[in-house]
Design a protein around this nucleic acid. Structure first.
Lengths: 102, 102
DNA sequence: CCTATTGTTCTATAACATTAGAACAATGCG
DNA sequence: CGCATTGTTCTAATGTTATAGAACAATAGG
């Protein structure tokens, strides 16, 4: 299986998206993509095991926050910005704008 | 003990606030206060046991989302709107504005 | 074909969350 | 005071999540 499942825009739920955002590791993934653009899983410098990172990417993907596009041996991660903005206007921006303690 | 602990504005964290928002029961509490103003715990029509409701109010309070003010035998719940807006501009509004599936 | 790279999936474990019943505390009212 | 009201806290059960090691799968490159 090379293609992972992504939920349709209309089936995104607020709870699930907020939950996906609510973990510091996942939040750092989201902020990194927002700041540096799309990137493969290995380039985030996460201080967790590979399998743990994979779990977090999965939570983000299944919540509809990120898109994972296979490219060679890796997956390129990007934000589903348009879908998020359309379903939850202002939410992603507010999360990205937040400063201070994580 | 009649006075419950509320975290200082500057010690609010994004993860904790997002986590507090990420539960459907808690989200309904927040939306109800936003829509109808401050109200005691008993008036939310939550379909969970009293002790469970108390747990959710506590999570919201300890995340800094709500303020619980004792008044007679009850606690009046209000949103810490100014604190939230100041620490996480646009976040509460985005959450309240969201429509569709919970 | 062999090997390295990249990331997933499987399995297990420890920590944490949700739920609710029962007991308790504080207040107000007769 | 006695009692109802309101909500908390304690305890326990159940379920979920984060974590990581090991095995696996897909691809690229030699």
């Amino acid at each position: 299986m090379r293609t992972l499942h992504h939920p349709a825009k209309k089936s995104l739920t607020l709870s699930r998206v907020l939950y996906a955002f609510s973990d510091p590791v996942r939040l750092s993934i989201v902020k990194s993509i927002a700041a540096h653009g799309e990137q493969p899983c290995g380039t985030f410098g996460l201080s967790v095991a590979k399998s743990t990172a994979s779990h977090h990417f999965r939570v983000l993907r299944e919540a509809g926050v990120i898109q994972m596009r296979p490219e060679g041996t890796q997956y390129i991660n990007s934000l589903r910005r348009d879908d998020l903005d359309s379903r939850f206007p202002g939410l992603l921006d507010a999360v990205l704008r937040a400063t201070g303690p994580i």
